[in-house]
Amino acid sequence: MLGFVIQRLIQAAAVMAVMSVIVFVGVYAVGNPVDIVIPPDATQDVREEAIRRLGLDLPLWRQYFLFVGGVLQGDFGRSFIYNEPVLSLIAGRAPATIELVLISVLCATVIGVSLGVYAGYRPHAPLARAIMALSVLGFSVPTFWVGLILILTFAVSLGWLPAGGRGETVLILGVRWSFPTLDGLAHIALPALNLALFKMAMMIRLARSGVREIMLTDTIRFARAAGISEATILRRHVLKLIAAPIITVFGLELGSTLAFAVVTETIFSWPGMGKLIIDSITLLDRPVMVAYLILTALLFVTINLLVDLAYAAIDPRVRSGEAR
């Protein structure tokens, strides 16, 4: 087991090294920030001074190693635009995104898996058909449109929930969170629902097909033949047997939503990281872009590692390295 973890950590480090090069070169290719950062009427001296100060006069490979050296000491550089350390800039925005995404992905998983298990267990029941229709809807309707409809319905027409912003926040561990307050939760509800619909649809389908397949196996027949009750079979056998794909999708969705919740954050004016990355791209704020993309890569690598560990925790065959 320890060997497994070490092997995965080495892989993760390799992936991060490759990603950092790709990101750095890619962002370098996007455009020259000098034209945006320095006023057009600046003199040649001021211009060159600024270029030197930002380190843009160095060859790319030296810029890269300077950057990597900084990162290893926890310094991702300073934003060209805000003139603030990039890390604190991102850290200031991250909690809003994290709480929104965690709530939506968790709700999507819990509700989606429950509905999917039911739909797979009783595939011909009217309720199961209704659930499947709902999941098709969740798949096919675009997120931005659902967001607008949610605002129109619940915020404008009914007036039950606020249309945007984070609402009242509480300071925990030096970070502002919305979820502990009632007002905050009311603000989270609509954007979280908006983000959750597509994921819930996916979880429903995943759980349903898994359950349908497993209910036909000899494992379940044998359990029934031993007189084990249906509730116990679902809880002890089926949920465990369908867990692997669900954990995978949970991890992927968590990562991609954390990194790219832009559309929903924009519609609900949610002050998360999505807005930050869009601004940094339009303003060619290179340090923010690079740091954001690398942190995103780190996030995915970490999530994948956790998913692999979760596999090993569930499946003894993975633990013993005998993947069959």
Partner: peptide, 17 residues
């Protein structure tokens, strides 16, 4: 009344002791 099946690989749940 109990029953045993053909393929013991398929009847036992691989994820439980």
């Amino acid at each position: 009344i109990a029953m045993i099946f053909q393929d013991p690989v398929a009847t036992l749940n691989p994820l439980l002791t």
